[in-house]
Design a protein around this nucleic acid. Structure first.
Lengths: 153, 153
DNA sequence: CGACATCTGTTGTCGAACAAAACAATTTGT
DNA sequence: ACAAATTGTTTTGTTCGACAACAGATGTCG
């Protein structure tokens, strides 16, 4: 061994062989999604907004009056998970549960005025966060990626 | 109303506007990953193998003697999550915990003989499952996707 | 050698995701 | 009109992953 051998500090990190995982789309998707999830959390956790909650906000904003289950179905979430999400967002004064006039079982979800300006700033922050990750892409690759991923839903 | 009017069966499903989500890579990645996750589960849940456990099996097979934390770090998992995974895989007689000879704190993980033939069949089944999803891609798109996603880890 | 920091595996706790069932209101069938 | 089936929401229980804290073992450095 060399002069400064026996490097106990040595991160003798053998590179780790990933085998078939290197060619599996499912695994790579999970890793990439984790990166985006962490980036989102770092940017928005101080506001108490997770990626899932952001999705609910956007869908409610774009489709006022939707029921909880309709939102859940649109986002491919579970209905029972929606109650906690709506509870939290209502507690933050961002959205409102109004009794539906046509069906007294269901609630119609609406954005509050405060929620509208809140999501405006939030969306901008999310956009800036994603822009940073988009720097890893060459021009056109984002659109390519989106068009391909759309086929898997 | 007309004769057969009042189509109560009518799924008056207004198409739902997704707003900015349609252009957000994070959201699309989550949806795509969910599809792959469900496909994997449908193919392998009867064997008691989840996508996460499959990753552990592959890494241990390709890198015999690795410690638990090394495997966790390679797969971007938490160390604490590894104990349950290794417990389960060891209970299935697929891998083995052997005390490390150099470091009495850590275990060295190895594949059992049965585990080796098990993962062989398992890998083939996973491959067939993914092949079905790859039918949605044009030739070359899979490689494009993999090379792009690799930049996000 | 001996104080001190670091690392490994583990446990416990918390919160999110999912399934099944309960409950309330509506719709359907006769 | 009235019983049965359906739908919207909530509750409950379970599972899973992330995070903090811990004891035992190892390494560092005076």
């Amino acid at each position: 061994m060399g002069v400064a051998a026996k490097k106990t500090i040595s991160p003798e990190e053998e590179p780790v062989n990933f085998g078939v995982l290197d060619h599996m789309l499912g695994y790579k998707l999970r890793r990439a999604q984790l990166t985006f999830f962490n980036s989102f959390s770092a940017a928005c956790s101080d506001l108490g907004i997770s990626p899932g909650l952001f999705g609910v906000l956007v869908v409610v904003k774009e489709n006022p009056g939707l029921t909880q289950t309709a939102v859940a179905k649109a986002l491919a979430n579970d209905r029972s998970a929606m109650v906690g999400a709506v509870d939290k967002l209502e507690q933050m004064k961002l959205i409102e549960r109004r009794p539906s006039k046509k069906d007294r079982r269901s609630y119609a979800l609406f954005m509050t005025r405060y929620g509208l300006e809140f999501i405006e700033k939030l969306t901008q922050r999310v956009r800036e966060q994603e822009e940073q990750l988009y720097k890893l892409l060459k021009p056109g690759e984002k659109e390519t990626l989106l068009s391909i991923l759309d086929r898997f839903d």
